[in-house]
């Protein structure tokens, strides 16, 4: 570990080919794990005796919900590195994570709604987790919108960095406040803690799907960061020398 000079990869020139080599690996891992996970989740795992087959939604709901929160933290960490060390690659990584994070949040909300309808009898309940997830989506959209509103990419990097750091401090506070609000209005909400004890096979299916979602996110973020690098380093010699740019 210590022998690797991590700062070597803090430059797009070295990071770009590294990302290119990693993408197929992560993409294939994601595809294989997703195939196994879907088979386990949809075919092997038995029907839940309480929720019937509706529970099979959690094989995509839980992984995307985890990722949506985790990606925000990862984005904030890259932003902090970018602000602290003024490294271009970190800022570009933060920029590349935001859309994937927002999409994961969206899927978590959507699947949560379609799980809630058969389970709770309603598409939307002001449950603490769903409400926090909704606000998390707004936080992601805020970062993306701020990025789009600023023309100078360096200013955008730093502004989005400050915003995501403020956001990451707020996420736990928001979750705590929504939970607090939820318990105060117990009558109007539906308890979500009634999750049934899951059989081992269900848990393993969910874990496999989580890894698949992880690998997919890494692959797509790396692919996006490569695009961002070409875009922002356009005109630099190393971009001009790339095989895909050189050869028509």
């Amino acid at each position: 570990m210590a022998s690797i000079n991590w700062f070597k990869y803090a430059s797009p020139v070295t990071f770009f080919p590294l990302a290119g080599r990693l993408i197929p690996w992560f993409a294939w891992m994601a595809a294989i794990l997703a195939a196994i996970g879907l088979y386990v989740g949809l075919v092997v795992a038995p029907t839940d005796f309480q929720q019937g087959d509706a529970y099979r939604i959690i094989f995509i709901h839980v992984p995307t919900a985890w990722l949506s929160m985790f990606l925000y933290v990862v984005m904030a960490i890259w932003s902090a590195l970018a602000l602290g060390f003024n490294t271009r690659v970190s800022a570009m990584m933060a920029q590349a994570i935001a859309p994937t994070g927002a999409l994961m949040t969206f899927i978590a909300l959507w699947t949560g709604a379609f799980w809630g309808r058969p389970t709770w009898g309603t598409y939307w309940a002001w449950d603490a987790r769903m409400t926090s997830e909704l606000i998390l989506l707004f936080l992601y959209l805020g970062v993306i919108a701020l990025r789009n509103a600023i023309d100078d990419p360096r200013r955008a990097d730093r502004a989005c960095g400050v915003l995501s750091l403020v956001g990451v401090v707020n996420v736990p506070i928001i979750y705590f406040s929504v939970k607090w609000w939820n318990t105060l209005h117990q009558g109007s909400s539906i308890s979500m803690t009634a999750a049934p004890k899951m059989a081992a096979i269900m848990v393993s299916g969910m874990l496999i799907m989580s890894f698949a979602a992880w690998f997919y996110s890494i692959a797509v973020v790396l692919a996006r960061v490569r695009t961002i690098m070409i875009d922002r380093e356009r005109g630099a010699a190393w971009v001009g020398n790339l095989a895909e740019v050189k050869n028509a």
Binding site: I135, L141, N170, V178
Partner: peptide
């Protein structure tokens, strides 16, 4: 409008504890 998008989600805890 961008300001509203950035700031209103951050106001949520204040709103909850305040109105609560």
């Amino acid at each position: 409008s961008l300001l509203a998008l950035l700031i209103l989600p951050l106001y949520v805890p204040v709103l909850i504890f305040g109105a609560g």
